[in-house]
Nucleic acid binder design. Structure first.
Lengths: 235, 235
DNA sequence: CGATGGATTGACAAAGGTCAAACTGTGTGG
DNA sequence: CCACACAGTTTGACCTTTGTCAATCCATCG
């Protein structure tokens, strides 16, 4: 653990100072950012924490989850490098966000200041708007994954999503930054079914893997065909 | 049909001129709005339509849906009065939106102008930001509904959602603005299961109904207990 | 080289999907 | 005003899929 302040767990790493950012990020927004480092399962924020910040994953991965009264967990979103999160219409967070891999880096933007910045700088406002639109698009795409009728569909869609989001260009290797249990809670199915389905996909020669988290897509078409693909994906 | 222009189906009703809006809406944004009227199943926009407008439901209801290759349909969101929709990170819509009840009224905001307005007026920008945050919250809540493990959970959560969103204060009556088939596609289950589950809930005296779409909640607790309630709901 | 926690496999039961038939309520036309 | 037709809804019977419980496997790390 190390740090224990409610809203500020995670080890502070430093301010954002890369002026060589690949994406055309708002510099003025980046200057507000403070980056912190998290270990596996360490929370970025918890249920009911005040919504004081907006966040963005810099490296590693995190899960946004809700807990049910009877102990079940549902993962609403996996957050990967570049993803913004923590947007909230009310004053308190209603999910918790935890790192899923050690050494996850998350940038934190003080909400008040960021809002003020957005008010005075249309570029920032547009940037944030775009980020929320993308968040909406991701959620909607995810809903289609979740609505898939069979286990095969859901797992295939998940693998394709991960390939798109984490994929190193060209390579067919995916490094899944989460456990089978996380995947199960993400797809709303039993962990055993996730496992069985991956085995099935391997039997169909759609994927290979030796280590559980290092998956290689051998035959993308199989994965794409199984779920019959939704006509639309985004907004 | 009547009107056939791709992006502008629906019968034009007029500009927004209620200065007596209950909510503190941005007047400057409202002045951009043009309201159109739609019949049941009439599209507001279709898959791949250019994203020229943002929209907002004024009265009635609509569904945002995706179609799969094999003819299945998934409803990503029901849109009720007050809900904004059509936010899109890309240039074309990837869902279709259709009215689910006759006489649905939808306000349409030219995207270009609205974006310009947001750039010049921080109030408008903040307003839109808030609308997108709420859209995100709704989608996340919805994901929890969809992730519910049993049919009973999903249908209960759906009824509570509808009670919250359409509910006339005080009354326990819900007027469902959609067919069983729509509900099934929304909850990703078979229409027969929706029906059976409603019957089951009626047997448990949680709800009553004579007409299929006019449901009365008799025992809210039963509905709230069944799904064990997720700890968090929103962001 | 064992210990530990995650992952896999197996056997079984239960939930929900599918197909088919019956029912109901609404609107139409006689 | 009634009879009928149609679309939407409900119910029934059956079977596939997935969840559950339990045992085994495996990789990693002391």
């Amino acid at each position: 653990m190390g740090f224990s302040s409610v809203a500020c767990s995670g080890e502070l790493v430093g301010r954002f100072s890369r002026d060589s950012s690949a994406e055309a990020d708002c510099d003025s927004l980046q200057q507000l950012a403070v980056v912190a480092r998290y270990d596996t399962d360490q929370p970025v924020y918890r249920y009911n924490d005040p919504a004081q910040y907006w966040f963005r994953v810099v490296a590693g991965a995190a899960r946004k989850a809700a807990l049910s009264g009877d102990g079940r967990r549902h993962i609403v979103d996996f957050l990967l490098p570049g993803d913004f999160f923590g947007f909230c219409p009310s004053n308190g967070h209603h999910f918790c966000v935890e790192a899923t891999v050690a050494g996850t880096l998350v940038a934190r933007y003080p909400r008040r200041s960021a809002e003020q910045l957005a008010d005075s700088d249309p570029d920032v406002a547009r940037h944030i708007r775009q980020a929320t639109f993308e968040s909406i698009a991701r959620l909607q795409r995810r809903m289609l994954t979740l609505a898939g009728s069979s286990a095969l569909e859901k797992v295939s869609a998940f693998l394709l999503e991960m390939a798109d989001r984490t994929g190193v260009e060209g390579t067919r290797w995916i490094c899944l930054p989460m456990s089978r249990s996380d995947i199960a809670d993400y797809l709303a199915m039993a962990i055993e079914t996730v496992s069985r389905t991956l085995t099935e996909l391997r039997a169909r020669r759609a994927i290979t893997y030796r280590a559980a988290r290092r998956v290689q897509i051998c035959d993308r078409e199989v994965l794409e065909t199984v779920p019959m693909g939704w006509a639309g994906r985004t907004c």
